[in-house]
Amino acid sequence: MQNLSKYTSFSFALLALALVGCGKDKNLEEYQRDKLQQNLGLYKSVEGTYSGIVRSKTDNRVIGAMQISLTAQTRNKPSNDGQLSIGSPVLVGNVQFLDQDIINVVAPDGFYDPNTGLYNSQIEITRTAGGATNGGGSSGGGSGGNPPNNGGGYNNTPVAPGQGAERELIVLTGRLGNGNLVGDMQTQNYPEYGGRFELVRNGGTVRDLLRQARPGDRRREDSDVEKVTSYSGTTRFTDLNGSGDARPRPVRVTLTRQTYNTAEDILDLISPVRVVQASINYSDSLRLLFPKAIFDTRQGYLTAQTLLTLNGQLNQMTINCREQDDKSLYCTHLTSAGGEAAITEVTLDKGRSRDPI
Rank of each mutant, 00 (worst) to 15 (best):
G142V: 09
P147K: 00
P158G: 09
K44P: 04
I86G: 01
I102P: 00
S69Y: 00
N149H: 09
G140Y: 05
T74E: 13
A165W: 00
G87W: 11
Q163A: 06
R75F: 11
I63M: 11
G93K: 01
Q83A: 14
M185W: 12
T116V: 10
N94I: 13
G93V: 06
Q100I: 13
S139K: 07
R167N: 15
T133E: 15
G135R: 03
N156F: 10
G135M: 08
S143F: 08
I53S: 09
Q188M: 11
D101C: 05
N80I: 06
T187W: 02
R127L: 15
T126F: 07
V95R: 00
N115Y: 12
S138I: 14
T116P: 07
V95E: 02
Q188H: 08
S79A: 15
D99S: 15
G179W: 07
I63A: 08
G162A: 03
Y154L: 13
F97K: 05
N180Y: 14
Q67M: 14
P148K: 00
G164L: 12
L70Q: 04
P114S: 04
G135H: 05
G87N: 11
N80M: 03
G151Q: 03
G137T: 14
N115L: 14
V46I: 15
D113S: 13
D59K: 10
V106W: 00
L70T: 09
V46D: 02
F111T: 10
Q67H: 05
P78Q: 08
D99H: 14
T74K: 09
D101R: 01
V171D: 09
N178I: 01
D59I: 13
P161H: 05
N76P: 03
Y154V: 12
G137C: 13
V92Y: 02
T126R: 03
R61W: 13
S79M: 07
K44E: 10
I53K: 06
G135Q: 03
T173K: 14
K44Y: 07
L91H: 08
D113G: 04
L118W: 06
D99W: 12
G130D: 07
I68H: 12
V105H: 03
G162Q: 02
V92G: 00
K44G: 06
R167G: 14
F111W: 09
P161Y: 05
V106K: 03
Q96K: 13
E124G: 11
Y50A: 04
A65Y: 06
V62A: 08
D109T: 07
D59S: 14
Q96Y: 03
V92A: 04
V62G: 06
G52T: 13
G64Y: 10
T74P: 04
G131D: 13
L98W: 02
E47D: 08
V159N: 08
T133R: 12
P148H: 01
Q83T: 15
L91F: 12
G48Y: 05
K44C: 04
G152N: 15
L172S: 04
Q188V: 10
Y154P: 01
D59N: 15
Q67V: 08
A72H: 05
Q67S: 15
N178R: 05
Y112P: 01
G144K: 00
D113L: 07
D184T: 15
V182D: 11
N134S: 14
P147A: 13
A72S: 12
N104A: 05
G144H: 00
T126L: 11
V54K: 03
S139V: 09
M185P: 05
